[in-house]
């Protein structure tokens, strides 16, 4: 991990690169950001990254934009937040502006469609790779509370299709109650 090479330029270049090549919306780019900034660059801890994603998810606006603002702010303060949001927004801004001149032919182009169809499988593999690692980390932590929360939230989202914001609210509330309850029971009770 090359933590010493932290720079505003590298932050901008990283977010720009991820944003330019990540098809499929917020839930694809956020795991990729995690992989780059946590695993590769080592600028931020996995736990803190997950905290930031939770905040990004609870705020209005696209999750990719929100996560990049928080990430930039964490690493370089206000200047970092501006650089990373620019890096995230510029690629779609440039691409969509360019495409809006000839979008009819782009939309109906056979080659473009075939490339995108092929890419879907790659996108799915990339996101699965990150998910396997993240879910693995939660299970390896051997904290029953975290494993149960993860399982519960997964069932709520996948099986019952419950609104994301509601899931976030309930999980935060349960987390707070668990801490207060743990306090009341004293030190002899569960220790997280």
């Amino acid at each position: 991990m090359d933590q010493d090479k932290k720079s505003l330029w590298k932050l901008f270049a990283s977010t720009f690169y991820l944003s330019a090549f990540t098809f499929g919306g917020g839930y694809v780019i956020v795991p990729l950001m995690k992989k780059r900034f946590v695993d590769k660059l080592g600028w931020i801890e996995e736990e803190e990254m997950l905290n930031l994603i939770a905040i990004a998810q609870s705020s209005p606006g696209p999750i990719a934009v929100n996560t990049s603002i928080l990430l930039g702010y964490k690493v370089f303060g206000v200047a970092g937040s501006i650089m990373s949001v620019l890096g995230t927004v510029l690629p779609p801004l440039i691409i969509l502006t360019a495409i809006s001149y000839f979008y009819q032919s782009f939309k109906d182009n056979r080659v473009v469609r075939a490339v995108l169809m092929g890419m879907q499988a790659g996108v799915a593999a990339v996101i699965m790779d990150v998910i396997i690692s993240m879910v693995g980390n939660v299970i390896k932590s051997r904290k029953l509370f975290s494993i149960l929360m993860m399982g519960g939230a997964l069932i709520a989202a996948l099986v019952f299709d419950i609104n994301v914001v509601l899931i976030i609210l309930v999980c935060g509330l349960i987390g707070a109650i668990a801490v207060l309850y743990g306090d009341r029971k004293g030190k002899g009770a569960k220790k997280q």
Partner: peptide, 11 residues
């Protein structure tokens, strides 16, 4: 602590 596993689940 409650939100982190939820975020993993949502992803």
């Amino acid at each position: 602590g409650g939100l982190r596993p939820a975020v993993v689940a949502l992803i």
